[in-house]
């Protein structure tokens, strides 16, 4: 993709991916989901998850899975609020950009 993904957008995407699973989801799955929409190296995601965890937007808990404890991530209350703020901001952003693109079409 020609457009860069900034830190805030990557945070928003990760929060959105994690929010899809009420039960919480795990590192490998989050990585694969995020990689479906943006290009990023596999090693990039752990620092992002760790930061979101430190900021209090994500919480980690151990879930029993196939005879072992798997570390899972889920959204906290502040994480949900933050995701809402990102989504609002994003839709405003997209609307503005689309507005400009469509204006150009009108002029042509």
């Amino acid at each position: 993709m020609v457009f860069n993904t900034g830190a805030a957008l990557l945070d928003a995407i990760v929060l959105a991916v994690v929010s899809k699973d009420e039960e919480g989801t795990y590192g490998y799955k989050i990585t694969q989901e995020v990689r479906r929409v943006i290009e990023l190296s596999e090693s990039t995601l752990y620092p992002v998850l760790r930061r979101l965890q430190k900021n209090g937007y994500l919480e980690v808990y151990d879930r029993e899975c196939a005879g072992r404890n798997r570390r899972s991530y889920r959204l906290t209350g502040p994480g949900r609020t933050q995701l809402g703020a990102y989504q609002k901001e994003w839709s405003e952003y997209v609307e503005k950009i689309n507005g400009i693109f469509e204006e150009e079409e009108w002029n042509e």
Partner: peptide, 20 residues
């Protein structure tokens, strides 16, 4: 992998990030 972890601990932006 170690560098990416260290970068986060040092509170630096990871190479992928562009300042907005």
């Amino acid at each position: 992998v170690a560098e990416s972890i260290r970068a986060e601990l040092a509170d630096k932006e990871i190479a992928l990030y562009q300042p907005q």
